[in-house]
């Protein structure tokens, strides 16, 4: 990848203190990672290996002491609008309509009304929610709520978008649709994305690069490049795409070996 690194992580480790035993849980170990502009990086790894911990540190929601993490050359200290997060659960506000949720970031930044309205409409259309602008979240399906969450984060125009298993809570059919849509959206917005998932297929389908974490404490076990142009990434074509199936199988093997060695240990 050419271009500048948007996210730089150097020697990042994390220990959770355990209030009861006094021992600490070693969640992350010596992570080095760079994510470049307009790159889509997917992280997979066994359950409990520290993926969410990693994302929360980058998001600024979890303080860290060991190692460095920088966005655009600035050390991460607390949450900020330069790092937008799409959470797994529905984190959009039930008391705001679709358009007010999507425009929330701009509102917090005191963007002029007309400008906000224009941008919100753009993202409403982009994620296919036209006609639902004035609905409240409880009137939407799970998939639509996640579309709102994605649009809300994009509309605030972050330097990097962090996504923690954003499609894990929707049904399989909706998930495929959302993955196709995310691809289209990424192509249209040229965003830099860090995407965490349990699903090897999802990682291979979406990522330009896929990082495989070892079991806890999470280390970077390996890195696989998936060299498929965005425009060619559509589920209907993927079954016959050997680049995709090869990458998927390779990642699957790596993750499997982690899970198995977990059982041995």
């Amino acid at each position: 990848m050419t271009g500048e690194a948007k996210l730089i992580v150097q020697g990042l480790s994390h220990h959770y203190p355990d209030e009861y035993t006094g021992e600490s849980v070693h969640a992350l170990d010596n992570i080095d990672l760079k994510i470049y502009e307009n790159e889509f990086v997917a992280i997979v790894g066994p359950s409990g290996c520290g993926k969410t911990t990693f994302l929360n540190i980058i998001a600024g929601l979890l303080p860290y002491r060991e190692g460095r993490a920088m966005v655009d050359g600035v050390d991460i200290k607390g949450p900020g609008p330069d790092r937008g997060v799409v959470f797994q659960e529905h984190a959009i506000l039930p008391w705001r309509t679709v358009s007010r949720n999507i425009g929330h970031g701009l509102e917090l930044r005191r963007t002029p009304k007309a400008e906000t309205q224009r941008r919100v409409q753009e993202y409403v259309d982009l994620v296919g929610l036209s006609g639902f602008e004035d609905r409240y979240p409880h009137e939407l399906s799970g998939g639509m709520k996640q579309r709102v969450a994605v649009a809300r984060t994009l509309c605030a125009d972050p330097v990097i978008m962090l996504m923690d298993e954003p499609f894990a809570a929707v049904d399989a059919q909706t998930r495929i649709t959302l993955q196709d849509e995310l691809n289209r959206v990424v192509m249209a917005t040229e965003k830099t994305i860090l995407f965490i998932t349990h699903s090897v297929e999802e990682a291979a389908f979406l990522g330009d690069r896929c990082i495989v974490f070892s079991r806890r404490p999470g280390r970077i076990k390996s890195e696989i490049k998936i060299d498929i142009p965005r425009a060619e990434r559509q589920w209907k074509d993927m079954v016959n795409n050997s680049k995709f199936t090869d990458a998927r199988d390779e990642i699957l093997g790596l993750v499997r070996s982690e899970v198995t060695s977990n059982d041995d240990g």
């Binding site: 998001a59 600024g60 929601l61 949450p79 900020g80 959470f87 659960e89 959009i92 506000l93 917090l108």
Partner: peptide, 14 residues
């Protein structure tokens, strides 16, 4: 109030 709602607003710059 779910913590994730607060975190959502914080990561939007609130």
């Amino acid at each position: 109030v779910p913590k994730v709602l607060v975190q959502g607003v914080q990561t939007l710059g609130g």
